[in-house]
Design a protein around this nucleic acid. Structure first.
Lengths: 233, 233
DNA sequence: CGAGCACTTGAAAGATTTCAAGTCCAGTGG
DNA sequence: CCACTGGACTTGAAATCTTTCAAGTGCTCG
């Protein structure tokens, strides 16, 4: 519980992101720069809650460094993870009034938050911003739809494979599995045992390789891609 | 393949919906009236495609009468139904550029469509409309999130139960199951056999009752509600 | 009245989950 | 510096829920 990636508030446009060598940043991010002066950066520590499920939705967020998960809990403890968010990605848009999901830091992280009300007020005057917001939301909706297919119609192997590919596409370089097996399981609608077994299988046949505890490398992308869309087993 | 519910184009605001005794109409609808003059009504027949998966997204839609499903197909034929849309509800918002899902009429239906470009242009000038659009999208996003929990973490019985309750809440009066077992199965991430068996079970213990072929009545709402959130069987 | 399709039902096969031990580390304390 | 403790992860075996495969059944449309 010490030493965050960065401590100072970071007010520069997110475009400049020298820390880790990420891709050019997802297109989804751009527009938020219009209101960079509204943003305030916040440091959160591993497993710390950024906002709670059903909290009034007062801010939009963007990850600057570290990573975040959004989760929903059922009364009996079953859990669903909605998203894993990497640097540059935005969250907190799933809110009409109150947040649908809670947001928690996967690891020590720096996030930037923008007051909802003011952003929306601004959007009322700025057509470009307004459209940008709609696009961001659209992107979220599309992702949610893709998840439906995964959760509703894919086998365990397919889910794991597409999950790894998705991570690989978002994070340049080796994948950092900052999330626990439980997080992955709750993201994919599986149990931790099934996740573990499938990962073990992939390690055994040389499709992936893991170092340390959470650094993962894809050694045979083709195999993963085949596995991601393979009917039954 | 004959006799639509209504043949003439219907240009009145959707508020007036005398045909079947529906609820006051979901709140999600309201805002679209701002651009009633942009809308054009279209008649579609049972199983007819309104737009295809990956078609360029040129219109936003609203159901006037009848009902609609949105579906996505995987290469190997697996299918996921995203939504069942009842009168008053809107669709075609899941589009950045091209539609994520195809939309097909569940039964002969009348839908109203609004040119995307023009609506968005209008939204650029009209803050209220812009916000309304964002709210509609938000509502869709929230629904998608709820589906995630259903698809990722619920048992077959829970899925069926919550599906029936959801339908009951949207359609006042007895539920009309305009969709086939296959549609329901693909909506809930189950097989038609499982859907059929579960429904049979519910009929057997008197929780629901079915007439004709698609009219369904909930006779024991409490039982359904219990079943909708019951861990394991 | 017959054909075809949707739905139901039964039995067997499977894929995941559940239950139960292990194993592996990281952080702690001796 | 090294053994120890707790939590996360892995692995194995049995239990289960769903699916798959296979017939029925019943309706609707010609």
């Amino acid at each position: 519980m010490s030493g965050h990636t960065q401590t100072a508030l970071q007010l520069q446009p997110v475009q400049a992101q020298p820390a880790n060598a990420r891709k050019p940043l997802p297109p989804s991010v751009a527009g938020l720069n219009l209101l960079e002066n509204l943003g305030v950066s916040i440091v959160v520590r591993r497993d710390q809650e950024i906002y709670g499920q059903d909290d009034p939705a007062e801010y939009y967020y963007q990850v600057i460094s570290g990573s975040v998960r959004t989760v929903k809990l059922m009364a009996d403890g079953r859990r669903q993870v909605s998203e894993f968010l990497l640097p540059g990605e935005v969250f907190g848009f799933d809110a009409l009034d109150r947040y649908d999901f809670a947001a928690e830091a996967l690891e020590d992280a720096l996030v930037r938050r923008y007051p909802r009300r003011r952003v929306e007020a601004l959007a009322g005057q700025d057509a470009a911003l307004s459209q940008r917001l709609r696009q961001l939301m659209n992107a979220k909706l599309r992702q949610a739809h893709d998840r439906m297919l995964v959760l509703g119609r894919m086998t365990a192997s397919e889910r794991i494979a597409s999950f790894l590919l998705q991570l690989a596409d978002r994070a340049a370089g080796p994948i950092e599995l900052a999330m626990s097996r439980r997080d992955i399981a709750d993201y994919l609608g599986l149990t931790i045992e099934t996740v573990s077994r499938t990962l073990t299988m992939l390690k055994a046949d040389g499709t992936i390789r893991m170092f340390k505890k959470c650094r993962l490398e894809i050694r045979n992308r083709a195999a993963l891609e085949a596995m991601a869309s393979e009917r039954r087993h």
